[in-house]
Design a protein around this nucleic acid. Sequence first.
DNA 1: ACAAAAGTGTTTTTAGTACACCCATGT
DNA 2: ACATGGGTGTACTAAAAACACTTTTGT
Lengths: 247, 247
Amino acid sequence: MPRLSQKIGVYQEYLPHLSVDCVVFGFNENGLKVLLLKMKHREEWALPGGFVGQDETVEAAATRVLQERTGLEQVFLQQFHVFSDPNRSEGNSASSGDKQAAAWLNQRFITLGFYALVPFDKVKPQPDAISEACTWWDVEAVGSLLIDHNLILKKALEAMRLQLRYQPLGLNLLPAKFTMPQLQKLYEIILGQTLDRRNFQRKMMDYGILHRLEERKTGVAHKAPYYYKFNKQRYKQALKEGLEGGW
Amino acid sequence: MPRLSQKIGVYQEYLPHLSVDCVVFGFNENGLKVLLLKMKHREEWALPGGFVGQDETVEAAATRVLQERTGLEQVFLQQFHVFSDPNRSEGNSASSGDKQAAAWLNQRFITLGFYALVPFDKVKPQPDAISEACTWWDVEAVGSLLIDHNLILKKALEAMRLQLRYQPLGLNLLPAKFTMPQLQKLYEIILGQTLDRRNFQRKMMDYGILHRLEERKTGVAHKAPYYYKFNKQRYKQALKEGLEGGW
DNA sequence: ACAAAAGTGTTTTTAGTACACCCATGT
DNA sequence: ACATGGGTGTACTAAAAACACTTTTGT
Protein backbone atom coordinates (compact mmCIF):
# COMPACT_ATOMS: atom_id res chain seq x y z
CA MET A 1 0.00 0.00 0.00
CA PRO A 2 1.66 3.24 -1.11
CA ARG A 3 2.11 5.88 1.52
CA LEU A 4 1.11 9.36 0.61
CA SER A 5 2.70 12.68 1.11
CA GLN A 6 -0.29 14.84 1.62
CA LYS A 7 0.66 17.84 -0.43
CA ILE A 8 0.53 16.82 -4.03
CA GLY A 9 -0.48 19.63 -6.28
CA VAL A 10 -4.12 20.47 -6.62
CA TYR A 11 -5.02 17.47 -4.55
CA GLN A 12 -3.84 19.14 -1.38
CA GLU A 13 -7.22 20.72 -1.13
CA TYR A 14 -8.75 17.30 -0.53
CA LEU A 15 -8.61 14.90 2.37
CA PRO A 16 -6.41 11.93 1.55
CA HIS A 17 -7.69 8.37 1.40
CA LEU A 18 -11.27 9.45 1.21
CA SER A 19 -13.58 9.55 -1.78
CA VAL A 20 -17.27 9.76 -2.50
CA ASP A 21 -19.04 7.75 -5.16
CA CYS A 22 -22.49 8.67 -6.36
CA VAL A 23 -25.05 6.29 -7.74
CA VAL A 24 -27.26 8.66 -9.67
CA PHE A 25 -30.65 7.23 -10.50
CA GLY A 26 -32.92 8.64 -13.15
CA PHE A 27 -36.15 7.38 -14.60
CA ASN A 28 -37.77 7.54 -18.00
CA GLU A 29 -40.31 5.59 -20.05
CA ASN A 30 -37.86 2.78 -20.53
CA GLY A 31 -37.00 2.20 -16.95
CA LEU A 32 -34.55 3.01 -14.23
CA LYS A 33 -31.28 4.55 -15.35
CA VAL A 34 -27.95 5.15 -13.72
CA LEU A 35 -25.39 7.76 -14.71
CA LEU A 36 -21.98 6.36 -15.63
CA LEU A 37 -18.66 7.73 -16.78
CA LYS A 38 -16.33 6.22 -19.36
CA MET A 39 -12.79 6.76 -18.16
CA LYS A 40 -10.11 7.68 -20.65
CA HIS A 41 -7.76 4.82 -21.53
CA ARG A 42 -10.02 2.32 -19.82
CA GLU A 43 -12.52 -0.23 -20.85
CA GLU A 44 -14.78 -0.04 -17.85
CA TRP A 45 -17.36 2.51 -16.99
CA ALA A 46 -17.48 3.99 -13.53
CA LEU A 47 -19.70 5.76 -11.07
CA PRO A 48 -19.21 9.50 -10.83
CA GLY A 49 -17.05 10.25 -7.85
CA GLY A 50 -14.84 12.80 -6.26
CA PHE A 51 -12.96 13.77 -3.17
CA VAL A 52 -13.78 15.57 0.03
CA GLY A 53 -12.51 19.09 0.49
CA GLN A 54 -10.45 19.89 3.57
CA ASP A 55 -13.28 22.02 4.85
CA GLU A 56 -16.30 20.40 3.32
CA THR A 57 -18.91 17.98 4.58
CA VAL A 58 -19.19 14.69 2.74
CA GLU A 59 -22.69 15.67 1.69
CA ALA A 60 -21.34 18.87 0.19
CA ALA A 61 -18.70 16.88 -1.65
CA ALA A 62 -21.30 14.56 -3.11
CA THR A 63 -23.53 17.50 -4.01
CA ARG A 64 -20.61 19.14 -5.77
CA VAL A 65 -19.88 15.99 -7.76
CA LEU A 66 -23.52 15.76 -8.70
CA GLN A 67 -23.66 19.36 -9.71
CA GLU A 68 -20.64 18.94 -11.93
CA ARG A 69 -21.96 15.82 -13.67
CA THR A 70 -25.61 16.69 -13.96
CA GLY A 71 -25.82 20.45 -13.74
CA LEU A 72 -28.41 20.08 -11.00
CA GLU A 73 -28.28 22.15 -7.86
CA GLN A 74 -30.95 20.49 -5.78
CA VAL A 75 -30.74 16.74 -5.61
CA PHE A 76 -32.03 14.11 -3.26
CA LEU A 77 -28.93 12.57 -1.75
CA GLN A 78 -28.62 9.69 0.63
CA GLN A 79 -25.60 8.16 2.31
CA PHE A 80 -25.93 4.43 2.27
CA HIS A 81 -22.65 2.63 2.89
CA VAL A 82 -18.92 2.98 3.42
CA PHE A 83 -16.73 0.74 1.27
CA SER A 84 -13.36 0.15 2.82
CA ASP A 85 -11.86 -3.12 1.68
CA PRO A 86 -8.12 -2.33 1.57
CA ASN A 87 -7.93 -4.28 -1.70
CA ARG A 88 -10.97 -2.78 -3.30
CA SER A 89 -9.01 -1.09 -6.07
CA GLU A 90 -6.91 -4.19 -6.66
CA GLY A 91 -5.48 -4.31 -10.16
CA ASN A 92 -6.54 -0.78 -10.94
CA SER A 93 -3.40 1.26 -10.52
CA ALA A 94 -3.78 4.58 -12.25
CA SER A 95 -1.23 5.27 -14.91
CA SER A 96 -1.18 8.88 -15.85
CA GLY A 97 1.46 11.08 -17.38
CA ASP A 98 0.89 13.32 -14.40
CA LYS A 99 2.95 11.93 -11.54
CA GLN A 100 1.08 13.91 -8.92
CA ALA A 101 -2.21 12.64 -10.22
CA ALA A 102 -0.96 9.07 -10.30
CA ALA A 103 0.36 9.32 -6.76
CA TRP A 104 -2.95 10.68 -5.60
CA LEU A 105 -5.04 8.14 -7.41
CA ASN A 106 -2.95 5.19 -6.28
CA GLN A 107 -3.58 5.83 -2.61
CA ARG A 108 -5.81 3.53 -0.73
CA PHE A 109 -9.32 5.03 -0.82
CA ILE A 110 -12.17 4.50 1.51
CA THR A 111 -15.22 5.55 -0.38
CA LEU A 112 -18.51 6.85 0.91
CA GLY A 113 -21.45 5.62 -1.11
CA PHE A 114 -24.28 8.03 -1.88
CA TYR A 115 -27.25 7.51 -4.03
CA ALA A 116 -29.08 10.33 -5.71
CA LEU A 117 -32.51 10.54 -7.26
CA VAL A 118 -32.69 13.08 -10.06
CA PRO A 119 -35.14 14.14 -12.76
CA PHE A 120 -33.98 12.38 -15.90
CA ASP A 121 -34.90 15.09 -18.41
CA LYS A 122 -33.31 17.92 -16.51
CA VAL A 123 -29.90 16.29 -16.43
CA LYS A 124 -27.19 17.43 -18.82
CA PRO A 125 -24.56 14.73 -18.37
CA GLN A 126 -21.05 16.21 -18.32
CA PRO A 127 -17.88 14.11 -18.40
CA ASP A 128 -15.14 15.17 -16.00
CA ALA A 129 -11.49 15.82 -16.80
CA ILE A 130 -10.47 12.19 -16.76
CA SER A 131 -13.51 10.88 -18.60
CA GLU A 132 -14.44 10.81 -22.21
CA ALA A 133 -18.13 10.19 -21.80
CA CYS A 134 -20.94 10.55 -19.29
CA THR A 135 -24.26 8.97 -20.09
CA TRP A 136 -27.28 7.21 -18.72
CA TRP A 137 -27.32 3.45 -18.64
CA ASP A 138 -30.27 1.21 -18.09
CA VAL A 139 -29.74 -0.34 -14.67
CA GLU A 140 -30.42 -3.76 -16.14
CA ALA A 141 -27.84 -3.28 -18.88
CA VAL A 142 -24.88 -2.19 -16.79
CA GLY A 143 -21.82 -4.32 -17.46
CA SER A 144 -18.62 -4.74 -15.53
CA LEU A 145 -17.66 -1.50 -13.82
CA LEU A 146 -14.45 -0.08 -12.46
CA ILE A 147 -13.08 -1.62 -9.24
CA ASP A 148 -15.95 -2.35 -6.85
CA HIS A 149 -18.51 -0.10 -8.48
CA ASN A 150 -20.79 -2.99 -9.33
CA LEU A 151 -20.98 -3.76 -5.64
CA ILE A 152 -21.67 -0.13 -4.83
CA LEU A 153 -24.45 -0.03 -7.38
CA LYS A 154 -25.96 -3.23 -6.01
CA LYS A 155 -25.90 -1.89 -2.45
CA ALA A 156 -27.43 1.38 -3.60
CA LEU A 157 -30.33 -0.45 -5.19
CA GLU A 158 -30.87 -2.47 -2.05
CA ALA A 159 -30.75 0.64 0.10
CA MET A 160 -33.22 2.41 -2.14
CA ARG A 161 -35.63 -0.54 -2.13
CA LEU A 162 -35.46 -0.70 1.61
CA GLN A 163 -36.11 2.98 1.94
CA LEU A 164 -39.12 2.67 -0.32
CA ARG A 165 -40.77 0.52 2.32
CA TYR A 166 -41.23 3.33 4.74
CA GLN A 167 -40.58 6.51 2.85
CA PRO A 168 -42.25 8.19 -0.07
CA LEU A 169 -40.31 8.23 -3.30
CA GLY A 170 -40.69 9.95 -6.60
CA LEU A 171 -40.48 13.64 -5.91
CA ASN A 172 -36.92 13.72 -7.12
CA LEU A 173 -37.26 11.22 -9.92
CA LEU A 174 -40.36 12.44 -11.66
CA PRO A 175 -41.19 15.73 -13.32
CA ALA A 176 -43.27 18.19 -11.34
CA LYS A 177 -46.41 16.93 -13.05
CA PHE A 178 -46.75 13.23 -13.61
CA THR A 179 -49.42 10.60 -14.13
CA MET A 180 -50.35 7.74 -11.87
CA PRO A 181 -49.14 5.10 -14.36
CA GLN A 182 -45.78 6.85 -14.43
CA LEU A 183 -45.50 6.75 -10.68
CA GLN A 184 -46.58 3.15 -10.64
CA LYS A 185 -44.01 2.18 -13.21
CA LEU A 186 -41.34 3.83 -11.09
CA TYR A 187 -42.36 1.76 -8.10
CA GLU A 188 -42.55 -1.41 -10.15
CA ILE A 189 -39.10 -0.94 -11.54
CA ILE A 190 -37.51 -0.11 -8.25
CA LEU A 191 -39.25 -2.95 -6.48
CA GLY A 192 -38.79 -5.36 -9.34
CA GLN A 193 -42.40 -6.55 -9.30
CA THR A 194 -45.70 -5.65 -10.87
CA LEU A 195 -48.38 -3.99 -8.79
CA ASP A 196 -52.13 -3.84 -9.13
CA ARG A 197 -53.05 -0.60 -10.84
CA ARG A 198 -56.17 0.06 -8.79
CA ASN A 199 -54.74 -0.82 -5.39
CA PHE A 200 -51.67 1.21 -6.15
CA GLN A 201 -53.71 4.28 -6.88
CA ARG A 202 -55.75 3.95 -3.72
CA LYS A 203 -52.75 3.37 -1.51
CA MET A 204 -50.90 6.34 -2.93
CA MET A 205 -53.88 8.59 -2.48
CA ASP A 206 -54.41 7.30 1.05
CA TYR A 207 -50.90 8.34 1.95
CA GLY A 208 -52.06 11.87 1.38
CA ILE A 209 -48.90 12.99 -0.34
CA LEU A 210 -50.45 13.47 -3.79
CA HIS A 211 -52.63 16.17 -5.23
CA ARG A 212 -54.55 15.57 -8.41
CA LEU A 213 -54.71 18.39 -10.94
CA GLU A 214 -57.63 19.21 -13.20
CA GLU A 215 -55.32 18.83 -16.15
CA ARG A 216 -55.02 15.61 -18.08
CA LYS A 217 -52.29 14.32 -20.28
CA THR A 218 -52.85 15.16 -23.95
CA GLY A 219 -51.97 13.46 -27.20
CA VAL A 220 -52.28 9.97 -25.84
CA ALA A 221 -54.21 7.12 -27.25
CA HIS A 222 -57.04 5.92 -25.02
CA LYS A 223 -58.31 7.62 -21.94
CA ALA A 224 -56.16 10.49 -20.84
CA PRO A 225 -54.74 10.11 -17.34
CA TYR A 226 -54.78 12.94 -14.83
CA TYR A 227 -51.68 14.75 -13.84
CA TYR A 228 -50.65 14.70 -10.21
CA LYS A 229 -48.29 16.72 -8.11
CA PHE A 230 -46.68 15.90 -4.83
CA ASN A 231 -47.84 17.83 -1.83
CA LYS A 232 -44.37 18.81 -0.77
CA GLN A 233 -45.21 19.58 2.82
CA ARG A 234 -46.82 16.23 3.39
CA TYR A 235 -44.13 14.56 1.35
CA LYS A 236 -41.38 15.94 3.51
CA GLN A 237 -43.31 15.08 6.60
CA ALA A 238 -43.63 11.51 5.35
CA LEU A 239 -39.89 11.43 4.68
CA LYS A 240 -39.33 12.13 8.33
CA GLU A 241 -42.12 10.22 9.95
CA GLY A 242 -42.36 7.34 7.56
CA LEU A 243 -45.22 5.72 5.73
CA GLU A 244 -46.97 2.64 6.89
CA GLY A 245 -47.21 -0.60 5.05
CA GLY A 246 -44.90 -2.40 2.71
CA TRP A 247 -45.23 -3.95 -0.71
CA MET B 1 -8.32 24.01 10.23
CA PRO B 2 -4.91 22.60 11.07
CA ARG B 3 -3.08 20.80 8.32
CA LEU B 4 -1.47 17.53 9.20
CA SER B 5 1.82 16.00 8.42
CA GLN B 6 0.92 12.38 8.15
CA LYS B 7 3.76 10.78 9.99
CA ILE B 8 3.33 11.58 13.63
CA GLY B 9 4.62 8.88 15.87
CA VAL B 10 2.42 5.89 16.54
CA TYR B 11 -0.37 7.52 14.65
CA GLN B 12 1.31 6.87 11.33
CA GLU B 13 -0.28 3.48 11.35
CA TYR B 14 -3.69 5.08 11.00
CA LEU B 15 -5.40 6.90 8.17
CA PRO B 16 -5.55 10.61 8.88
CA HIS B 17 -8.81 12.54 9.28
CA LEU B 18 -10.81 9.40 9.77
CA SER B 19 -12.23 7.94 12.95
CA VAL B 20 -14.83 5.44 14.00
CA ASP B 21 -17.24 5.95 16.89
CA CYS B 22 -19.16 3.08 18.37
CA VAL B 23 -22.51 3.31 20.05
CA VAL B 24 -22.51 0.16 22.13
CA PHE B 25 -25.94 -0.87 23.34
CA GLY B 26 -26.55 -3.28 26.16
CA PHE B 27 -29.70 -4.26 27.96
CA ASN B 28 -30.56 -5.27 31.49
CA GLU B 29 -33.57 -5.30 33.84
CA ASN B 30 -33.46 -1.54 34.13
CA GLY B 31 -33.47 -0.74 30.47
CA LEU B 32 -31.31 0.06 27.50
CA LYS B 33 -27.73 1.00 28.27
CA VAL B 34 -24.93 2.60 26.32
CA LEU B 35 -21.23 2.27 27.00
CA LEU B 36 -19.44 5.57 27.61
CA LEU B 37 -15.94 6.70 28.41
CA LYS B 38 -14.91 9.45 30.78
CA MET B 39 -11.98 11.27 29.25
CA LYS B 40 -9.13 12.40 31.44
CA HIS B 41 -9.09 16.14 32.19
CA ARG B 42 -12.56 16.53 30.74
CA GLU B 43 -16.03 16.92 32.07
CA GLU B 44 -17.89 15.20 29.30
CA TRP B 45 -18.29 11.54 28.63
CA ALA B 46 -17.73 10.19 25.15
CA LEU B 47 -18.49 7.29 22.88
CA PRO B 48 -15.74 4.73 22.48
CA GLY B 49 -13.87 5.41 19.30
CA GLY B 50 -10.69 4.83 17.42
CA PHE B 51 -8.92 5.16 14.15
CA VAL B 52 -8.67 3.14 10.99
CA GLY B 53 -5.47 1.26 10.27
CA GLN B 54 -3.69 1.86 7.00
CA ASP B 55 -4.58 -1.62 5.91
CA GLU B 56 -7.77 -2.29 7.77
CA THR B 57 -11.44 -2.16 6.85
CA VAL B 58 -13.60 0.24 8.81
CA GLU B 59 -15.54 -2.73 10.16
CA ALA B 60 -12.32 -4.25 11.43
CA ALA B 61 -11.43 -0.95 13.06
CA ALA B 62 -14.77 -0.79 14.83
CA THR B 63 -14.49 -4.43 15.87
CA ARG B 64 -11.06 -3.75 17.29
CA VAL B 65 -12.34 -0.78 19.30
CA LEU B 66 -15.18 -2.91 20.60
CA GLN B 67 -12.88 -5.71 21.52
CA GLU B 68 -10.65 -3.35 23.45
CA ARG B 69 -13.49 -1.72 25.39
CA THR B 70 -15.68 -4.73 26.03
CA GLY B 71 -13.46 -7.77 25.73
CA LEU B 72 -15.92 -9.26 23.28
CA GLU B 73 -14.78 -10.91 20.09
CA GLN B 74 -18.07 -11.43 18.34
CA VAL B 75 -20.33 -8.42 18.24
CA PHE B 76 -23.21 -7.34 16.11
CA LEU B 77 -21.98 -4.25 14.32
CA GLN B 78 -23.79 -1.94 11.98
CA GLN B 79 -22.61 1.11 10.05
CA PHE B 80 -25.26 3.76 10.22
CA HIS B 81 -23.98 7.23 9.34
CA VAL B 82 -20.97 9.34 8.47
CA PHE B 83 -20.55 12.52 10.48
CA SER B 84 -18.51 15.11 8.68
CA ASP B 85 -19.38 18.61 9.77
CA PRO B 86 -16.03 20.43 9.52
CA ASN B 87 -16.85 22.14 12.80
CA ARG B 88 -18.06 19.10 14.64
CA SER B 89 -15.21 19.19 17.13
CA GLU B 90 -15.57 22.93 17.62
CA GLY B 91 -14.24 24.07 20.95
CA ASN B 92 -12.69 20.72 21.73
CA SER B 93 -9.04 21.18 20.96
CA ALA B 94 -7.04 18.45 22.60
CA SER B 95 -4.38 19.67 25.00
CA SER B 96 -1.95 16.96 25.80
CA GLY B 97 1.60 17.00 27.02
CA ASP B 98 2.35 14.83 24.04
CA LYS B 99 2.76 17.11 21.05
CA GLN B 100 2.35 14.32 18.55
CA ALA B 101 -0.85 13.22 20.19
CA ALA B 102 -2.16 16.77 20.28
CA ALA B 103 -1.36 17.30 16.60
CA TRP B 104 -3.09 14.08 15.72
CA LEU B 105 -6.14 14.75 17.81
CA ASN B 106 -6.54 18.30 16.57
CA GLN B 107 -6.95 17.28 12.96
CA ARG B 108 -10.29 17.51 11.38
CA PHE B 109 -11.99 14.12 11.76
CA ILE B 110 -14.70 12.60 9.71
CA THR B 111 -16.18 9.89 11.84
CA LEU B 112 -17.95 6.74 10.82
CA GLY B 113 -20.79 5.85 13.14
CA PHE B 114 -21.32 2.23 14.11
CA TYR B 115 -23.73 0.79 16.54
CA ALA B 116 -23.17 -2.46 18.32
CA LEU B 117 -25.52 -4.74 20.21
CA VAL B 118 -23.79 -6.67 22.96
CA PRO B 119 -24.72 -8.93 25.86
CA PHE B 120 -24.69 -6.67 28.92
CA ASP B 121 -23.42 -9.23 31.45
CA LYS B 122 -20.56 -10.47 29.33
CA VAL B 123 -19.01 -7.06 28.93
CA LYS B 124 -16.01 -6.08 31.03
CA PRO B 125 -15.76 -2.35 30.38
CA GLN B 126 -12.15 -1.25 29.93
CA PRO B 127 -11.08 2.40 29.77
CA ASP B 128 -8.56 3.25 27.07
CA ALA B 129 -5.30 5.12 27.51
CA ILE B 130 -6.85 8.56 27.48
CA SER B 131 -9.85 7.68 29.64
CA GLU B 132 -10.27 7.32 33.34
CA ALA B 133 -13.50 5.37 33.28
CA CYS B 134 -15.61 3.18 31.05
CA THR B 135 -19.12 2.31 32.21
CA TRP B 136 -22.67 1.68 31.17
CA TRP B 137 -25.14 4.52 31.18
CA ASP B 138 -28.86 4.34 30.97
CA VAL B 139 -29.76 5.71 27.55
CA GLU B 140 -32.34 7.95 29.16
CA ALA B 141 -29.85 9.37 31.63
CA VAL B 142 -27.07 10.33 29.25
CA GLY B 143 -26.05 13.93 29.69
CA SER B 144 -24.03 16.24 27.47
CA LEU B 145 -21.38 14.27 25.61
CA LEU B 146 -18.14 15.21 23.90
CA ILE B 147 -18.39 17.13 20.62
CA ASP B 148 -21.26 15.73 18.53
CA HIS B 149 -21.60 12.44 20.34
CA ASN B 150 -25.12 13.23 21.48
CA LEU B 151 -26.08 13.52 17.83
CA ILE B 152 -24.34 10.27 17.00
CA LEU B 153 -26.17 8.51 19.81
CA LYS B 154 -29.48 9.93 18.66
CA LYS B 155 -28.89 8.80 15.08
CA ALA B 156 -27.84 5.35 16.28
CA LEU B 157 -31.09 4.97 18.17
CA GLU B 158 -33.07 6.02 15.13
CA ALA B 159 -31.17 3.63 12.91
CA MET B 160 -31.71 0.79 15.34
CA ARG B 161 -35.43 1.51 15.61
CA LEU B 162 -35.72 1.54 11.87
CA GLN B 163 -33.90 -1.72 11.55
CA LEU B 164 -36.17 -3.30 14.10
CA ARG B 165 -39.03 -2.87 11.65
CA TYR B 166 -37.77 -5.48 9.28
CA GLN B 167 -35.09 -7.39 11.10
CA PRO B 168 -35.05 -9.57 14.17
CA LEU B 169 -33.30 -8.16 17.20
CA GLY B 170 -32.26 -9.51 20.53
CA LEU B 171 -29.81 -12.30 19.82
CA ASN B 172 -26.93 -10.03 20.62
CA LEU B 173 -28.56 -8.13 23.44
CA LEU B 174 -30.06 -10.91 25.53
CA PRO B 175 -28.52 -13.85 27.31
CA ALA B 176 -28.71 -17.22 25.59
CA LYS B 177 -31.80 -18.10 27.62
CA PHE B 178 -34.39 -15.40 28.18
CA THR B 179 -38.05 -15.00 28.94
CA MET B 180 -40.74 -13.54 26.73
CA PRO B 181 -41.31 -10.57 29.06
CA GLN B 182 -37.59 -9.81 28.82
CA LEU B 183 -37.72 -9.82 25.06
CA GLN B 184 -40.83 -7.70 25.08
CA LYS B 185 -39.26 -5.17 27.39
CA LEU B 186 -36.32 -4.91 25.04
CA TYR B 187 -38.63 -4.16 22.15
CA GLU B 188 -40.64 -1.69 24.17
CA ILE B 189 -37.58 0.20 25.23
CA ILE B 190 -36.08 0.36 21.80
CA LEU B 191 -39.35 1.34 20.19
CA GLY B 192 -40.31 3.70 22.98
CA GLN B 193 -43.83 2.34 23.30
CA THR B 194 -45.70 -0.33 25.18
CA LEU B 195 -46.86 -3.44 23.38
CA ASP B 196 -49.64 -5.88 24.06
CA ARG B 197 -48.19 -8.87 25.87
CA ARG B 198 -50.34 -11.44 24.10
CA ASN B 199 -50.03 -10.09 20.59
CA PHE B 200 -46.32 -9.71 21.10
CA GLN B 201 -45.90 -13.32 22.06
CA ARG B 202 -47.92 -14.59 19.12
CA LYS B 203 -46.10 -12.42 16.62
CA MET B 204 -42.71 -13.45 17.90
CA MET B 205 -43.59 -17.13 17.78
CA ASP B 206 -45.07 -16.71 14.29
CA TYR B 207 -41.77 -15.35 13.06
CA GLY B 208 -40.38 -18.77 13.80
CA ILE B 209 -37.12 -17.51 15.21
CA LEU B 210 -37.77 -18.63 18.79
CA HIS B 211 -37.65 -21.97 20.49
CA ARG B 212 -39.28 -22.50 23.85
CA LEU B 213 -37.44 -24.61 26.41
CA GLU B 214 -39.02 -26.89 28.99
CA GLU B 215 -37.27 -24.94 31.68
CA ARG B 216 -38.94 -22.08 33.52
CA LYS B 217 -37.50 -19.20 35.41
CA THR B 218 -37.17 -19.95 39.14
CA GLY B 219 -37.35 -17.83 42.24
CA VAL B 220 -39.89 -15.41 40.88
CA ALA B 221 -43.10 -14.31 42.44
CA HIS B 222 -46.21 -15.25 40.51
CA LYS B 223 -46.35 -17.62 37.58
CA ALA B 224 -42.95 -18.61 36.29
CA PRO B 225 -42.27 -17.73 32.64
CA TYR B 226 -40.69 -20.16 30.22
CA TYR B 227 -37.21 -19.67 28.92
CA TYR B 228 -36.70 -19.23 25.20
CA LYS B 229 -33.74 -19.47 22.89
CA PHE B 230 -33.24 -18.03 19.46
CA ASN B 231 -33.11 -20.45 16.59
CA LYS B 232 -29.89 -19.08 15.19
CA GLN B 233 -30.31 -20.47 11.72
CA ARG B 234 -33.72 -18.92 11.28
CA TYR B 235 -32.59 -15.78 13.03
CA LYS B 236 -29.75 -15.27 10.60
CA GLN B 237 -32.01 -16.04 7.72
CA ALA B 238 -34.44 -13.41 8.95
CA LEU B 239 -31.58 -10.93 9.23
CA LYS B 240 -30.96 -11.36 5.55
CA GLU B 241 -34.43 -11.76 4.20
CA GLY B 242 -36.27 -9.52 6.59
CA LEU B 243 -39.35 -9.98 8.69
CA GLU B 244 -42.76 -8.84 7.69
CA GLY B 245 -44.88 -6.36 9.53
CA GLY B 246 -44.04 -3.35 11.60
CA TRP B 247 -44.96 -2.16 15.06
C1' DA C 1 -57.82 -16.63 49.03
C1' DC C 2 -56.09 -13.25 46.43
C1' DA C 3 -53.04 -10.27 43.84
C1' DA C 4 -49.87 -10.30 40.23
C1' DA C 5 -47.80 -12.15 36.32
C1' DA C 6 -47.87 -15.55 32.58
C1' DG C 7 -50.02 -18.65 29.02
C1' DT C 8 -53.86 -19.51 25.60
C1' DG C 9 -57.88 -18.30 22.97
C1' DT C 10 -61.54 -15.34 20.63
C1' DT C 11 -63.53 -11.19 18.66
C1' DT C 12 -63.13 -6.95 16.29
C1' DT C 13 -60.95 -3.94 13.31
C1' DT C 14 -58.03 -2.69 9.80
C1' DA C 15 -55.22 -3.21 5.91
C1' DG C 16 -54.16 -5.79 1.77
C1' DT C 17 -55.56 -8.33 -2.35
C1' DA C 18 -58.46 -9.60 -6.12
C1' DC C 19 -61.61 -8.52 -9.21
C1' DA C 20 -65.76 -6.20 -11.84
C1' DC C 21 -67.43 -2.30 -13.97
C1' DC C 22 -67.59 2.06 -16.32
C1' DC C 23 -65.29 5.96 -18.91
C1' DA C 24 -62.51 8.28 -22.45
C1' DT C 25 -59.83 8.45 -26.60
C1' DG C 26 -57.59 7.22 -31.16
C1' DT C 27 -57.90 4.19 -34.77
C1' DA D 1 -67.62 0.30 -32.83
C1' DC D 2 -63.96 -1.45 -30.51
C1' DA D 3 -59.58 -2.05 -28.45
C1' DT D 4 -56.82 -0.13 -25.00
C1' DG D 5 -55.68 2.13 -21.05
C1' DG D 6 -57.50 4.88 -17.06
C1' DG D 7 -60.72 5.86 -13.02
C1' DT D 8 -63.92 4.12 -9.31
C1' DG D 9 -66.16 0.76 -6.40
C1' DT D 10 -66.92 -3.69 -4.04
C1' DA D 11 -66.10 -8.29 -2.22
C1' DC D 12 -62.76 -11.29 -0.14
C1' DT D 13 -58.83 -12.41 2.82
C1' DA D 14 -55.17 -11.97 5.95
C1' DA D 15 -53.03 -9.60 9.50
C1' DA D 16 -53.04 -6.55 13.43
C1' DA D 17 -55.19 -4.83 17.58
C1' DA D 18 -58.29 -5.36 21.42
C1' DC D 19 -59.95 -8.02 24.83
C1' DA D 20 -61.45 -12.38 28.04
C1' DC D 21 -60.30 -16.23 30.39
C1' DT D 22 -57.38 -19.58 32.77
C1' DT D 23 -53.04 -20.97 35.23
C1' DT D 24 -49.38 -20.48 38.48
C1' DT D 25 -46.92 -18.73 42.42
C1' DG D 26 -45.70 -15.96 46.70
C1' DT D 27 -47.68 -13.71 50.34
